[in-house]
Design a protein around this nucleic acid. Structure first.
Length: 528
RNA sequence: GUCCCGGUAGCUCAGCAGGAUAGAGCAUCUGAUUCCUAAUCAGAAGGCCACAGGUUCGAAUCCUGUCCGGGACGCCA
């Protein structure tokens, strides 16, 4: 719809104009303040310019009225256009709010360490990544989702050691001391019991078995993480193991060397990341020859770029922001276009409990599990909560408030709108096929506004995807639902002389809501 | 010290590629159901958009500075 309008406007106004939506629909469906910017060049008052411009649109069928108001140029779409579009949408629901962008995108997100279950802080990036993917795919982008498993570092050894100690303490009943850096928490004890079952209790008697426990623990945790994700309807296309990448290290290292990206100092290998804007050079191989975490990421990104995508999106926690410069520098050293790599930071989620700050630590074992929150409020509420806030802003919420979110939950509000439409259809005993060809002539303003707002979905999705701001989708759905509820209260559908027309408008609204909800992973209920 | 994010209604937040009267939800108060589900609607109240300058016909939005809050600045991952 917006595309059609833009085309027509370009014809008369040239390329350079701002198309916006008026605050109040009574002004019109679209508007442009172009007269203000032309006023200076033409040395005429904006009012006069707007008057003149409006005349150019007299013969455009798409508009019912083009009106100059205090310098603004307001456009009102014609019934005919709205009607034709409604018929098209109802007959081709799959084509509505879909597009054929063919960019190939690799989307990496979550990538939490396999050393414990997902906690509430991981949930934000997870939900954002998943919905971004769903929306992108609807718009035609070819998106592959990927989870990078950090299964190569010290933390995996620590996991094994923690299970080992938990086994000694809980199964062999020995007393052990737990230094700070170990993983605590019930899940470690569970793992110890599980390991005892799998390998026998004797495994905790010999420190040589720690490595075995590490691998066991890591695999168990990956399974747990996958099931945590599935609870919130998230599945990944692929998983990449950091460890498995290291066989390509020599090859990547040669590449870095030949691109003059590294040097040796103090027995260590450094990346010249300052050359591309990093604060300081970074060690990638330690004195004892063990590669650092950055080395793994360099191989990983080399691997990603070799796979030939048009764009690479990583969703990282905001605590990684200092890391962006060095990874981008590495990508550049590897000879790739670092502008294709886009990092979305999802800011910290701070939790309050009864008004008091609630500190989480995986190692201390006091963290709120994502799966616990899902049990408490459901996957949909969890998704909605994170999706309705910008990702790059700090988010604070109280765990106790979260639990009591019931009828004030905006999800119900939106679902109820969808359900109401469905019920009206059921009562009317008509189907979409029955009314999709009804002529929408002489529509009242209320139904026109509802129809128009329902048609906004495509441009909302496109905007939300391109600016990576998914809260625009939840906001839109809320406002569309509000309009529907208002309409419902003011107009009776069944039995009215406009019944069929209203049903047609409702059908479009329901379709918009349904598509919108699907894309954020929430069910559009037919009955509540 | 450097860098990132933020400061908008009592609370949680939208709005920020400059544009018409600054919005929503929650909380508070008043009203609406003989009729398609009241999980709804209508209305009231609530704001020096942190502060100070600047750019502009026009600034919550852009620029500079200040203050306040959160986070990051490992050869941890």
């Amino acid at each position: 719809m917006k595309r059609r309008v833009t085309e027509v406007l370009k014809k008369h106004l040239g390329e350079d104009f701002v198309l916006e939506k008026p605050k109040d629909l009574s002004f019109g469906h679209y508007a442009t303040p172009i007269a203000f910017s032309l006023a200076k060049v033409l040395r005429k008052s904006p009012m006069i310019i707007a008057d003149e411009l409006a005349k150019k649109f007299e013969n455009e069928e798409i508009f019912e009225k083009v009106e100059p108001v205090r310098g603004y140029l307001n456009f009102k779409l014609s019934d005919n256009f709205l009607n034709e579009y409604a018929t098209f949408v109802l007959e081709n629901p799959d084509k509505f709010a879909s597009d054929n962008n063919d960019e190939k995108i690799l989307l990496e997100y979550v990538s939490a360490n396999p050393t414990g279950p997902l906690h509430i802080g991981h949930a934000r990036g997870a939900v954002i990544g998943d919905s971004l993917c769903r929306i992108g795919r609807r718009l035609g982008y070819k998106i592959t989702t990927e989870y990078y498993i950090n299964d190569a570092g010290n933390q995996i050894y620590l996991l094994g050691l923690s299970i080992f100690l938990a086994g000694r303490e809980n199964i062999l009943k020995e007393s052990v001391s737990w230094p700070d850096e170990f993983y605590r928490g019930d899940y470690i004890v569970d793992l110890a019991f599980k390991a005892a079952k799998e390998f026998g209790e004797d495994i905790f008697k010999d420190e040589k078995n720690i490595e075995k426990l590490s691998l066991f623990g890591k695999d168990e945790m990956m399974e747990l993480i996958k099931s945590n994700l599935k609870e919130v309807l998230i599945e990944f296309d692929s998983f990449v193991s950091e460890k498995s990448l290291y066989e390509k290290w020599d090859e990547v290292f040669e590449k870095l060397k030949s691109n003059d990206a590294v040097y040796e100092k103090d027995g260590k290998i450094w990346l010249k990341s300052t050359k591309y804007g990093d604060e300081k050079d970074r060690v990638i191989v330690r004195e004892d020859k063990r590669p650092t975490y950055l080395a793994g990421d360099i191989i990983y990104h080399n691997d990603k770029f070799q796979r030939g995508y048009d764009r690479y999106i990583n969703i990282w926690g905001a605590d990684h922001h200092g890391y962006i410069a060095r990874v981008k520098a590495a990508v550049k050293f590897l000879g790739y276009d670092e502008n294709k790599l886009e990092i979305i930071l999802s800011q910290m989620v701070s939790l309050l409990k009864g008004g008091e700050p609630f500190k989480m630590s995986k190692r201390a074992g006091n963290f709120i599990l994502m799966s616990d929150v899902v049990k408490e409020i459901g996957a949909e509420a969890l998704r909605f909560m994170f999706l309705s806030k910008k990702s790059d802003t700090h988010l604070e919420f109280d765990v106790n408030l979260l639990k009591k979110e019931d009828s004030s939950n905006p999800i119900y509000y939106i679902q109820y709108a969808h359900a109401r439409i469905n019920q009206v259809f059921e009562k009317s005993k008509k189907s979409i096929e029955d009314i999709s060809k009804v002529e929408l002539e002489n529509l009242d303003e209320d139904s026109k506004n509802l129809l128009f707002t329902s048609f906004l979905l495509p441009e909302i999705l496109e905007d939300a995807f391109k600016t990576r701001s998914l809260q625009k989708v939840t906001d839109y759905l809320k406002s569309l639902a509000a309009l529907l509820h208002k309409f419902y209260n003011e107009h009776r559908v069944i039995g009215s002389k406009n019944e069929d027309k209203y049903l047609k408008v409702f059908a479009v609204t329901a379709l918009s809501i349904k598509i919108g909800l699907d894309l954020i992973g929430i069910e559009a209920k037919k009955r509540m």
